[in-house]
Each structure stands twice: as structure tokens, then as C-alpha cells.
């Protein structure tokens, strides 16, 4: 889970390692993920999102498809 300066840098990085390019996430979307996972982490009621919740969170941020499905066999 890494930062890149641009999509072109992602493509180069993946090509160099012969790995697939995955869906890109903007920093605005990443902030949404950070809030969903961690905003309550220091509180007693905090818990990790379960699979169905993860799908909802991802979809709410526009992250859909098999890559973001925790039940996928991808």
C-alpha cells in the first residue's frame, strides 16, 4: 500500500516487477478509507469493519469491483 507521484509511476513500478496494475485511489478517497478504519480506533467501542461493511465503505467511496471485494477469489 504505497504512494505514487502519478499513474505513470504506478505503471512503471508494476511493469518493473511484472505485477498487475491495480485500481488507483485518490488521496481524497484514501482519506475516506482512513476515517472509516481508524477514526474511532482509540476508543473502547472501536472495531474493524466486517466484510459486508467493507463492501459498503468501498462502494461509498466509488471503489467497486472484484479487487475491493473481501469475499473475492481474486
Amino acid at each position: 500500500m504505497l504512494f505514487f507521484r502519478s499513474e505513470a509511476q504506478v505503471i512503471e513500478w508494476c511493469r518493473d516487477r511484472q505485477v498487475p496494475v491495480r485500481p488507483l485511489v485518490t488521496l481524497e478517497q484514501l482519506w475516506g478509507l482512513a476515517l472509516a478504519w481508524y477514526a474511532t480506533r482509540l476508543r473502547s467501542e472501536s472495531r474493524r469493519p466486517q466484510a459486508a461493511e467493507m463492501v459498503e465503505i468501498f462502494a461509498g467511496l466509488g471503489l467497486t469491483g472484484e479487487f475491493w471485494d473481501p469475499g473475492s477469489r481474486l
Binding site: M1, L2, F3, F4, R5, S6, E7, V10, W13, C14, V19, P20, V21, R22, L24, V25, T26, L27, E28, Q29, L30, W31, M54, F58, E66, F67, W68, D69, P70, G71, S72, R73, L74
Partner: peptide, 25 residues
């Protein structure tokens, strides 16, 4: 990368995030 993150999130930036491993794994 130097990114200022306020209470409302990061400032405007065209950097991107990439994750190689699918959520299921």
C-alpha cells in the same frame, strides 16, 4: 512526499495510492 493533513483531510494533491494485494488477501 510532504502532505499536510488537516481535520478535514489532506490538502489538494494529485498523488495517488496503489495497493497490489486484493482486499480478500
Amino acid at each position: 512526499l510532504r502532505l499536510e493533513v488537516g481535520l478535514g483531510g489532506p490538502g489538494r494533491s494529485d498523488w495517488v495510492f496503489h495497493c497490489l494485494v486484493p482486499a480478500a488477501r
